[in-house]
Design a protein around this nucleic acid. Structure first.
Lengths: 116, 116
DNA sequence: GGATACCATTCCGGCTGCGAAACGAACGCC
DNA sequence: GGCGTTCGTTTCGCAGCCGGAATGGTATCC
């Protein structure tokens, strides 16, 4: 059974969560950084720079920079592929998993509070 | 009846829509700019710089800059308050209304496609 | 009418992200 | 083993946003 949302509900949900992100938090991620982070945590590994770039339809330097930012925040880690040393494998971290989980909680909480 | 979402659904929804925003579109709004835009269109007027700053818990220059960017894109307009000339009232535009509506459609479409 | 409070904007130096091109390292093929 | 290809990263100049302080215009209070 798909999730049904009316336009006003969908927009209010997006609004509420966006304000949450703007207010507290401090992490202050770009849309692209957020897209990279969520892809790494929601889609099955392995994740490479090239793969993420293709998935998000952006250039590789964009992914590299996003990974720099996310790495600085401790939300992901890079590891060289032992098999093919050209590749970099993006790894999840505990902090990253917690951050993503918290985002999910916020979305759910806001969805629950939506007017019918 | 509130909208029920499971964690995996909530995160996938956010992921899908974020990728939508990153890919197509071109408008490329900051989280803060998006928050300002949605607040103007979803909450009852009048909207002032001061009010928006308080609502989003950011400083006034942040709001002014966001309004500059949104104005350049034609998504909002500024008008001086006739009553109190110190105030600037933020007005909605047709283009802005369409943009917001489109965001709502995207969220709904993605929600519909969620796995149960 | 003069002092005070308020509102939005502008200024400042600094930081971060951007696209496009070039780069070094590692692979694979023959 | 040499050469073209595939990785991810770095470099370049540039544009935008950042926070914090200062500015100019307007209202309010007495």
């Amino acid at each position: 059974m798909p999730v049904e949302l009316r336009p006003s509900q969908a927009l209010k949900l997006w609004h509420d969560v966006t304000i949450d992100l703007v207010r507290g938090d401090g992490t202050d991620l770009t849309a692209r950084q957020l897209a990279v982070l969520l892809t790494v945590y929601l889609e099955p590994p392995p994740h490479t720079v090239r793969g993420l770039a293709a998935r998000l339809d952006v250039t590789k330097p964009v992914v590299t920079r996003a990974l720099d930012a996310l790495g600085r925040l401790g939300l992901i880690e890079r590891r060289r592929d032992e098999i093919d040393l050209r590749n970099v494998l993006i790894q999840r971290t505990v902090a990253g998993a917690l951050w993503v989980e918290r985002l999910g909680d916020r979305v759910i909480a806001r969805a629950k509070g939506l007017p019918r």
